[in-house]
Write a protein that binds this DNA or RNA. Structure first.
Length: 262
DNA sequence: ATGCCAACCCGGGGTTGA
């Protein structure tokens, strides 16, 4: 089974590229983030015509997650247990589904903006709710089933997951509390499934639109795949499809693709 | 050339992203 995660930075603005990527990459399951559209405005017709079942969850603006699947799509859960709110709103940032016997979550972790900002606190609280929800689900399904959380985590797990750690001295995405939150998520029994880069040394997944960041490979690895042992043991390959970051109308994130046995 | 930010909402400019 081929599973991918991709922050598309507006699913409607990216629709032509998404449809063409589905044809060439031929994934069975795709986790999408940053839809920038409501559940109602999601482009169902085009993606259903491409052969996928769809579960979407969005309200527009800077949120929204979805899963596309052509191997079944069941048991849809929208949102986390006791999900924290920001400005009195619970944003659509997580959706769980079961596809081909694998329990899969597509998540879009809050950005955090800057350390000390209310959004940064929200980010840490959101991570705690994600950890709690994952713990509940893993207890419920037992250790036999395959389970994975994929998405834009907005945290670079290690210093070499950013192009120059010195550039991030005052920034979010690399702070100890954020990395500790990722560590507590791993402690539920999940492993970070590291993709191989198709070029250069590091498997970055995001490059800013500004300042020739992509040609200079000034990137970050913030789109992650966290899977339990049953899932991890089935992984045969995992890579960043950096070709999709090229050209006109690209998202600023590239898809992470993985192939599993059966 | 992988090439100098993009998408949203609103109604030309501000906000957000990471």
């Amino acid at each position: 089974m081929r599973i991918a995660t991709w922050n598309v930075n507006s699913v409607n603005a990216r629709l032509d590229r998404l449809a063409s990527w589905l044809e060439t990459a031929s994934p069975d399951v795709v986790c999408l983030q940053e839809l920038k559209c409501s559940t109602e405005d999601f482009p169902y017709d085009r993606l259903v015509a491409a052969g996928y079942e769809v579960a979407a969850y969005g309200t527009g603006r800077w949120n929204g997650v979805a899963v596309l699947s052509r191997v079944g799509l069941e048991a849809v859960t929208r949102g986390l247990t006791d999900e924290p709110h920001y400005d009195d709103v619970v944003e659509p940032r997580a959706i769980g589904v079961t596809c081909g016997g694998v329990r899969i979550w597509s998540v879009y972790v809050p950005n955090g903006r800057e350390p000390g900002h209310a959004h940064y606190d929200y980010k840490l609280r959101w991570f705690e709710a994600l950890r709690a929800t994952v713990t509940e689900e893993l207890e419920h399904q037992g250790t036999d089933g395959s389970f994975a959380v994929l998405g834009d985590f907005n945290v670079a797990p290690q210093d070499d997951d950013v192009y120059d750690i010195a550039e991030f001295a005052e920034s979010t995405h690399v702070t100890t509390p954020e990395r500790d939150a990722l560590g507590r998520l791993r402690d539920t029994g999940l492993a970070d499934i590291l993709p191989r880069p198709l070029k250069y040394d590091q498997p970055y997944t995001y490059w800013d639109y500004r300042g020739l960041a992509f040609p200079k490979n000034r990137g970050m690895r913030i789109d992650l795949v966290y899977g339990n042992e049953s899932f991890h043991s089935r992984v045969r390959d995992c890579y960043v499809d950096r070709e999709e970051r090229k050209g006109k109308g690209a998202s600023d994130h590239a898809p992470v693709v993985l192939d599993t046995a059966d």
